[in-house]
């Protein structure tokens, strides 16, 4: 349920795409291989104008696609990871964190706060995949929980945007407990009559999927995102068979009744507004 190899590949892919985008005015689509103007892709919400492939973007960018401009007030920026297990594989965990903090210019893998959508207040937060594969350890779990508790206090609905390799192995059992913690917070939100919209982006896997992310009152998915509990490689190893094309992608989940809507980035704000209107405001 942790980060699988494909996620590591993905990190490299994300950073190489970023580099391409910065250096060239042209970009090659990883979906269809077609080449487009960078500006054209940007105007299309970082999606390929030819095939609608969704290029990876940061958590903050995703939030910005949804909210009213310049209305975001970030919460809990000072929370940092520790190393309670003294975890070491080929690298020490604190060294991995240090490198990620430097690379991403953020303290851990979650950015959350309050913002407005059409002038109305909501709490919104997203997982940053670029930070250790968006894995959920104590800090991510705590920040999500506080986002929800703050929403209860201020009577706001909550929007979460997921993008994660799952629970953070380097904090082992403490990461697992974040699944319980975030789900319990959402149980309280529900009791208060407030709503949770969960937006799943590529990829959403493991312990993140199996906790708060699948607990949206309405669940939206980015087109063609990988959304799963067990990763494709783990399943292939278990059943010793190749998996069918499109397995565990958003459209597959829609077909199997696991998500409400598959929504293109350019429709996110519109679809979320519709749902929030249905939830109602006080």
């Amino acid at each position: 349920m942790g980060i699988t190899d494909f996620l590591l590949e993905k990190i490299t892919k994300v950073s190489s795409q970023k580099k391409d985008m910065k250096e060239n005015i042209w970009s090659k689509c990883s979906g269809c291989g077609e080449i487009s103007y960078r500006q054209e892709i940007e105007d299309n919400y970082q999606c390929c104008p030819k095939c609608d492939f969704h290029f990876p973007v940061s958590a903050m960018q995703k939030i910005d696609y949804i909210i009213d401009p310049h209305t975001f007030v970030e919460f809990d920026t000072g929370i940092r990871s520790l190393d309670p297990l003294k975890f070491k594989d080929s690298k020490k965990y604190p060294d991995r964190i240090k490198a990620a903090v430097k690379k991403m210019d953020m303290n851990d893998a979650f950015v959350g706060g309050m913002a407005k959508i059409n002038g109305r207040e909501i709490n919104i937060g997203g997982i940053e995949f670029g930070f250790l594969g968006g894995s959920m350890g104590s800090v991510v779990g705590e920040k999500i929980t506080r986002l929800v508790e703050n929403a209860i206090k201020n009577h706001r609905h909550v929007i979460t945007i997921s993008c994660s390799g799952g629970a953070r192995m380097q904090e082992s059992i403490l990461s697992l407990m974040q699944m319980a913690k975030t789900s319990a917070a959402l149980a309280k939100l529900r009791m208060e009559g407030l709503g949770h919209i969960s937006l799943l982006t590529d990829p959403t896997t493991g312990g993140v999927t199996a906790s708060y992310a699948m607990l949206g009152d309405v669940i939206m998915a980015e087109p063609k995102a990988l959304i799963c509990f067990a990763g494709p490689r783990v399943i292939e190893q278990t059943i010793r068979q190749k998996l069918p094309e499109g397995f565990q992608r958003s459209e597959f989940l829609l077909e199997h009744g696991m998500v409400d809507i598959v929504s293109h980035r350019k429709r996110w704000r519109k679809d979320i507004t519709r749902v929030l209107d249905f939830f109602g405001y006080n």
Binding site: M179, S183, S211, M214, F247, H256
Partner: peptide, 18 residues
């Protein structure tokens, strides 16, 4: 497994936690 994913293993666990 494939069937477990199709039938929403993640949702089943998440709902149990809640």
């Amino acid at each position: 497994g494939i069937e477990a994913e199709e039938r929403g293993q993640a949702e089943a666990i998440a709902k149990s936690l809640m």
